[in-house]
């Protein structure tokens, strides 16, 4: 009997929790937004899908820190209805409602916010994109792996949000950032993760940023994306500068004491630098201009 009561209570509780979720959703006010004009903007997103979206978009949910930064830089922060917990820049972004993290955004919350558009990234969010679209929410995917793509994406987002001029400005600044720095010919290696050693390879955003800053990204020799590195090749390449992601909490000594590393030029010359901020280098957004400047400064230090 006791057992039966416990089971009964658990079942009731389970149902109660499900229904409480439902009532929250049905309470949603039926807002009818005014549509003074209907202009459509057609473009291809980074999943290579032909999209046609009514502009200007009045409410957006961003599922990536870089998208959040772009939207704020375009001066359209007020259109942002939801962000991820990783969206930490600018300060105002932290006050926005959170819809989960980068890896597991909460579909219910996004649907409840009823945004005109969700900005997502490729790969890890692919299944989520399908779910959202099945719920009648438009999703555009931007996942720049080069400065050129980043500028292109910002211009598209600008057109969508009605901030064309500003987007044009930022996009051009990003594309032209490389012209500020002359080619140093220095071989630069960036450590993204230790044990196993991972770097930024060909067709990665960071690789492009290093090139724009006047360096040669030796990570390109290890393959596409973010390859695991065989240190033997690194000894052969013998880079001039060794950059380390800040989040790894590594110091010069940590890297110098690795087997074989003491013979590297960059270790002998103490050209090992920890990035002051990972976000400005890794996020395809407006702050990459600052990121390139920082890398250039480190390369020439």
């Amino acid at each position: 009997m006791k057992k039966f009561i416990t089971v009964f209570l658990i079942v009731i509780l389970l149902f109660a929790s499900t229904f409480s979720g439902c009532t929250l959703e049905t309470k949603r006010p039926e807002k009818t937004t005014k549509k003074p004009e209907t202009t459509y903007f057609s473009f291809k997103d980074d999943l290579n899908r032909e999209l046609k979206i009514k502009v200007p978009v009045s409410s957006v949910v961003s599922l990536a820190p870089s998208h959040t930064e772009v939207i704020f830089a375009l001066g359209k922060g007020q259109k942002l209805k939801g962000v991820t917990v990783f969206c930490n820049y600018p300060e105002e972004a932290k006050k926005k409602p959170k819809v989960g993290d980068f890896f597991n955004p909460n579909v219910e919350m996004i649907v409840k916010l009823k945004p005109d558009l969700v900005l997502a990234v490729k790969g890890i969010q692919n299944s989520l994109i399908r779910t959202l679209e099945n719920n009648g929410i438009q999703v555009a995917v931007f996942d720049a792996t080069s400065l050129k793509d980043c500028a292109k994406d910002i211009k598209i987002i600008g057109k969508l949000l009605g901030a064309e001029k500003k987007a044009e400005e930022i996009g051009n600044a990003i594309v032209n950032a490389s012209s500020n720095y002359e080619k140093t010919g220095k071989k630069v290696f960036i450590e993204i993760s230790p044990d196993p050693l991972i770097t930024a390879g060909k067709n990665s955003f960071i690789s492009d940023a290093i090139k724009a800053a006047g360096g040669i990204n030796v990570g390109d020799e290890f393959g596409e994306g973010y390859p695991i590195v065989n240190p033997e090749k690194l000894f052969e390449i013998n880079p001039d500068v060794y950059l380390v992601s800040k989040s790894l909490n590594l110091k010069y000594e940590d890297i110098a004491k690795r087997p074989g590393f003491s013979k590297l030029k960059c270790i002998k010359n103490r050209k090992v630098f920890v990035l002051p901020d990972d976000d400005i280098v890794q996020r395809p957004g407006p702050r990459i201009i600052k990121g390139i400047e920082v890398i250039n400064e480190l390369i020439n230090r």
């Binding site: 990783f86 993290d101 044990d195 196993p196 050693l197 991972i198 695991i228 240190p231 087997p259």
Partner: peptide, 20 residues
């Protein structure tokens, strides 16, 4: 709020970083 990278790669097995 940490990412999974380190743990993920740790799980895949590597002999990198082995010293004397």
């Amino acid at each position: 709020g940490k990412d999974l990278y380190t743990v993920f790669f740790f799980m895949n097995g590597t002999t990198q970083g082995a010293g004397l």
